[in-house]
Write a protein that binds this DNA or RNA. Structure first.
Ligand SMILES: [Mn+2]
Ligand SMILES: [Mn+2]
Ligand SMILES: [Mn+2]
Ligand SMILES: [Mn+2]
Lengths: 164, 164
DNA sequence: ACAAAGATGTAGCCTTGGCTTCATTTCACT
DNA sequence: AGTGAAATGAAGCCAAGGCTACATCTTTGT
């Protein structure tokens, strides 16, 4: 006796229902497309946090050291070092052995974009009544998943509702 | 000639400045704590999406098949199968070879929480003026990073601002 | 009944992001 | 100038989440 469970007809989800199937291309369905977008945002998340943090450290202390980066992020130094190696490979930072980490133009540009986003998200959360400490935590995650349209909506809201 | 770069004093970031250092415990600084929280949210992200999707498929078609899950998420079936194995390990679903996937009580509970959050985030984004399709994409990522406090703020906002 | 097609499983590869442990380099201070 | 502590690097482990390729089971239809 094995596998006696009743089995409905196959193709419970007709391919066409889920696949937008409008034209050519790999054409994932709308559903799948949504998740794909989120996945790619997720893979950029760490790069964004690092560039932002490096910019902050440079501004505050004139340099960004692996140890400081690691401490700020709450990870061990080898983890930070490995991430920096990836940033380097992707052309976002430069570094030489035993010296600090420096943003390239591309890295600085990313940092600036991320900082703006971060600020807007935090201000927005506070504006709708989220306590500052909680807003700080939530913004750290949310910031990587807001599209330009959503960011604009956030920013408009903050401007139009100065006080509560 | 090597490593001639000027080097500032060490301890650019005095440990106390970054470590909350109020009491005992591993006591990461506030900064580090923020990122830790986000990291743990990130690791739950996939579990949440799977349980939610499984619940949706069961509701719509009476069953959740690996293939359908994979297609909806836009991943290959081995990827979905591996994720289901993890869900199983974590006690969120059950499954038998060549049969579908079923939520356990814990899984169903998670799915329900996630669905509520998803709905609120989407309604909220639309309420502040984000176009529906964009809101759908952004919500897919944001939903995993909203605390209860933020969710409450979102929900309050939607209730108090029915039309625009 | 059976064969083709579709669904599922299995194995194995890659990258990322964590970690520990140990070696090496630099720096600050005596 | 010398030395000990701190910072950095390097090696290697693990889990997660992607993938491809191939094997096996189930269903559907003839
Ligand atoms: Mn962040
Ligand atoms: Mn940030
Ligand atoms: Mn999601
Ligand atoms: Mn969702």
């Amino acid at each position: 006796m094995k596998n006696k469970a009743p089995r409905k007809k196959r193709a419970a989800v007709p391919a066409e229902a889920v696949a937008g199937a409008e034209q050519s291309a790999p054409d994932l369905g709308a559903e799948a497309h949504r998740f794909s977008q989120t996945r790619s945002a997720r893979s950029a998340e760490i790069l964004e946090d690092y560039t932002e943090l490096i910019a902050d450290l440079m501004e505050e202390h004139g340099e960004a050291r692996i140890t400081d980066i690691a401490r700020c992020l709450g990870v061990t130094h080898p983890t930070a070092a490995k991430a920096v190696a990836r940033l380097k490979r992707e052309g976002l930072v430069t570094s030489r052995p035993y010296r600090g980490v420096f943003l390239t133009e591309a890295g600085a540009a990313m940092a600036e974009r991320v900082r703006v986003r971060h600020r807007i998200v935090i201000e927005f959360l506070k504006a709708i009544g989220v306590p500052a400490e909680i807003a700080a935590v939530d913004a750290e995650g949310i910031e990587h998943y807001v599209s330009d349209a959503t960011l604009a909506a956030f920013s408009d809201f903050v401007r139009s509702a100065p006080e509560v």
